[in-house]
């Protein structure tokens, strides 16, 4: 459980996070969405105690991160795969981290195996690819077997196989009842992974909803082609829908495809096409964040 309440964070005059409130629940993968610069990383840094907020607070399991004695046992985080010393071996890097939180050495081997780096455990990190570093960062996050996991843009630099691996890992972690927060600026990626989304723009909360609701909300009606379109338009209008003509077809909203089909059947009108339409998630995301991107129509800060 992560709770962010009234969080405000300023860098000089720039407002990076503006009165942000949301909660991340266990058992779900929560996508943390926003365009680059929206304040995702800053929020995550505040949650991890790397930044002190100007106002508000962030709690993990009901406590501020900074007050935890062995935080890695409660929260695992991958903020930046590059935040390692290239001179150490993967095993040494993890062993240093584990020891600082009283985690046994056995875990190092376990997580290395889990992320598929066991073969290169004794190699220095300097020789790792970005993908290997991402895996190492995830291994570090998993060290303490924490109930809460946070990943900042984890798929950056990964190949498709790696992306699928991460997606499955996160689903599995959530499946084990853990709280999983994953940030991304790619909505499409989240659509495949997340159960819940928190969308921010310019540091403000834009949406905090389930993935299903998100899909629902951007329903764009049903496209219908029929032999007798004028009749069908009449029938559907009478049935409570709003209908307009579009490229020789009917665009229907207010009724779902099933109801449209039933009404057409009752009148004996043959349908040549019945397509429920929704905005692509990418479009929806853009729509949501359009007004709040830095260069868009601004509010007075």
């Amino acid at each position: 459980m992560i709770e962010v309440t009234g969080l405000t964070m300023r860098y000089g005059d720039a407002l990076a996070v503006d009165d942000l409130t949301f909660a991340v629940k266990p058992g779900l993968v929560t996508g943390f969405l926003g365009v680059n610069g929206a304040g995702k990383s800053t929020t995550m840094r505040v949650i991890l105690g790397l930044e002190a907020p100007d106002k508000g607070m962030a709690l993990v399991g009901g406590r501020p991160y900074g007050s935890m004695k062995e935080p890695m046992r409660e929260v695992g985080a991958l903020l930046d795969a590059g935040a390692v010393h290239g001179g150490r071996t993967a095993a040494a890097h993890l062993w240093c981290l584990a020891r600082s939180n009283g985690i046994g050495r056995g875990r190092v081997g376990e997580v290395l195996e889990q992320v598929g780096l066991l073969d290169v455990a004794g190699r220095r990190i300097a020789g790792f690819s970005l993908g290997m570093r991402q895996r190492l960062g995830i291994a570090a996050a998993l060290l303490g077997d924490p109930g809460v996991l946070m990943f900042d843009e984890p798929v950056n630099g990964l190949d498709p196989e790696g992306i699928r691996w991460i997606r499955e890992l996160m689903r599995r972690l959530a499946g084990e009842g853990r709280t999983v927060l994953v940030s991304s600026h790619l909505m499409g990626e989240m659509a495949l992974t997340a159960d819940h989304v928190v969308v921010i723009g310019r540091g403000r909360l834009i949406a905090d909803t389930t993935m299903a609701e998100m899909v629902e909300r951007f329903q764009r009606g049903v496209l219908v082609r029929a032999a007798d379109q004028p009749t069908l338009a009449y029938v559907l209008s009478a049935g409570g829908a709003s209908v307009r003509e579009e490229d020789g077809a009917l665009s229907v909203s207010g009724l779902d495809a099933t109801r449209i089909g039933e009404l057409a059947l009752a009148r004996g009108i043959a349908l040549s096409e019945l397509t429920p339409r929704s905005a692509s998630l990418e479009e929806a995301f853009m729509e949501l964040t359009e007004e709040s991107v830095e260069f868009g129509a601004g509010r007075a800060a």
Partner: peptide
């Protein structure tokens, strides 16, 4: 300084937030 130079400092401070 090597922690700052490599960025390890962020990882370290997440592990030891105090």
């Amino acid at each position: 300084t090597s922690e700052h130079a490599t960025g390890l400092i962020r990882t370290s401070l997440v592990a030891v937030p105090r």
